[in-house]
Design a binder for these strands. Structure first.
Lengths: 214, 214
DNA sequence: CGTGTTTTTGGCACGTTATGACAAATATGC
DNA sequence: GCATATTTGTCATAACGTGCCAAAAACACG
C-alpha cells in the first residue's frame, strides 16, 4: 500500500473508520464490565476477551485500561467546539457557548451513550484514581480545544490569558454541572444541568457580586 | 500503647509528624529524580533506594509512584482555604480569595519547594498521563476544599450550584495561571501570575461582556 | 537496665498492567 | 492467482502495586 495510499485528502480512511468503530465497541464493552463488576475486578484480559480480541490487540487500540472510557466521557465535546465556531456571530460569547453545547449534546451524544449509562459510569469514578484522572483529563483537553474557537470569536490570540480563563470557566461550569447531575438522583437530563450552570455563570455568579469593598 | 495513646486532642502525634517529614523528603527526592532522569526512567525502586528505604516501605508512604509529587503541587492550597475562612468579612468574595491566596503562597510554600524547582517539575508533566492526572487532581481536590469556606462566607450551602461554580472558577483561574507561568519563560513569580488571573476574573472576563444579544 | 508489647520495616510471592519482538493470519494490491 | 502490507496473536519481559509474614526498631513498664 505504497502507491495505493492515495486517498481524498483530509477524509478518514475506511480502515481508520473501522478502527474507530472497533474502539467504540470496546469502549462500551469495557464500560459495561466496569459498571457490572467494578473497575479493579475487571482485568484488561476480561475486556479483550469480551471484545473478541487478544490482550496485545487491545493495547493497539488503547494506551491503557482506563482510556477505554475517555471517548464516553468526551463524547460531544469535540462537536461543541466545532459548532461554537459556526455559531451566530451576533451572539455573545456565553450565549454562543450555551447554544452550541446544547446542539452538540443533542446531536452528537445521541447513539453513543445514553444518560443512564453515562450516569452509572460516572458514579464509579470517585474513589478510582485512574478513572477520576480520565474524567479530569477529558475536560482539561476540552479547555484547550475551546481556546482557538473562543479566540476566533472575540478576535484575540488563543494564548491570551483572558481567552484561557474564558475557556476554563465555561468548561469548568460544564464539568461541575455534569458531576452534580451524576451525583444526584434528579430526573433532569444532563443537558438541563449544564444549561443551568452556564446560565448561572452568565449572570456573573457569586464572584461578580463583590465589586464593592464593604 | 493502649493507655499511653492519650494525647492532646486534634493535634498530630509525634510519629505522625515524623511520618509527614519522611513523606516530604521522599517527595523532594522523587521530584529531583524525575526532573533529572525523566519520569518513566525513574523506577519506584530508584526512589526508594535514594530515600534509604525498601520498596515495600515506599508503598507504605505513597499509594503510587505519581503520588510523590502531589504534595509538591498542592502545597499552599490547604493553607489558602484556611486563610480564606479567616479573611476580613468585609472583603468581597474575590478579594478575599486573592488576599488569602497571596498570604498562603508566601508563607506556606516557602521552604517546601522554590519556584524554580516547581517550574521544572511542572514542565515534565505534559505528556505524562500519570503526572498530568496528579496535577489536575490536586486542583479538583482544592475545588472541594474551597466550597465550605466560600459557602460560609456568602451564607449559602456548600452544595449550592453557585458555590460550586464560584469555587470552580476561582480554582480554575489559579490552575491556569500556574500552567501559564510554568510554560513561559517570564521572570515573574508564580504568585504574580495568579494575581493577574484573579484580577482578570474579578473584572468579569470575556464571558461577562456579551450580555446583549447583538 | 531488661522484658514484653506494639509499631514499623523489609523480604517474598503474586497478579496485573503495559510494551517490544517476532510469527501467523488477514486484507489489499496487481 | 500471487505478492505485499497491515493487522493480529503469542511470547517474553519489566515495572507497578499488594497481601502476607518475619525481622527490627521504638516504646511502656517494672
Amino acid at each position: 500500500m505504497t502507491a495505493a495510499t492515495r486517498r481524498s485528502p483530509g477524509r478518514p480512511t475506511l480502515t481508520e473508520r473501522r478502527r474507530e468503530d472497533t474502539r467504540g465497541e470496546v469502549s462500551r464493552t469495557a464500560a459495561r464490565l466496569f459498571t457490572e463488576r467494578g473497575y479493579d475486578a475487571t482485568t484488561v484480559e476480561d475486556i479483550a476477551a469480551a471484545s473478541g480480541m487478544a490482550l496485545r490487540t487491545f493495547y493497539r487500540y488503547f494506551r491503557a485500561k482506563e482510556d477505554t472510557i475517555t471517548r464516553l466521557f468526551g463524547t460531544g465535546i469535540g462537536d461543541w467546539v466545532h459548532r461554537l465556531a459556526d455559531a451566530d456571530p451576533g451572539l455573545g460569547l456565553l450565549d454562543a457557548l450555551r447554544t452550541s453545547y446544547a446542539e452538540a449534546v443533542r446531536h452528537s451524544r445521541a447513539g453513543e451513550v445514553d444518560d443512564a449509562q453515562l450516569r452509572a459510569l460516572m458514579r464509579i469514578v470517585d474513589g478510582h484514581p485512574a478513572l477520576r484522572a480520565v474524567w479530569l483529563n477529558v475536560y482539561r483537553d476540552s479547555e484547550d480545544q475551546l481556546r482557538p474557537a473562543i479566540a476566533a470569536r472575540v478576535g484575540r490570540d488563543p494564548d491570551d490569558l483572558a481567552v484561557r480563563l474564558a475557556a476554563g470557566t465555561a468548561n469548568t461550569a460544564v464539568r461541575i454541572a455534569m458531576e452534580r447531575w451524576a451525583a444526584g438522583d434528579g430526573p433532569g437530563s444532563a443537558e438541563e444541568a449544564v444549561a443551568q450552570a452556564l446560565a448561572e455563570v452568565a449572570g456573573g455568579g457569586l464572584l461578580g457580586e463583590g465589586e464593592n469593598g464593604a
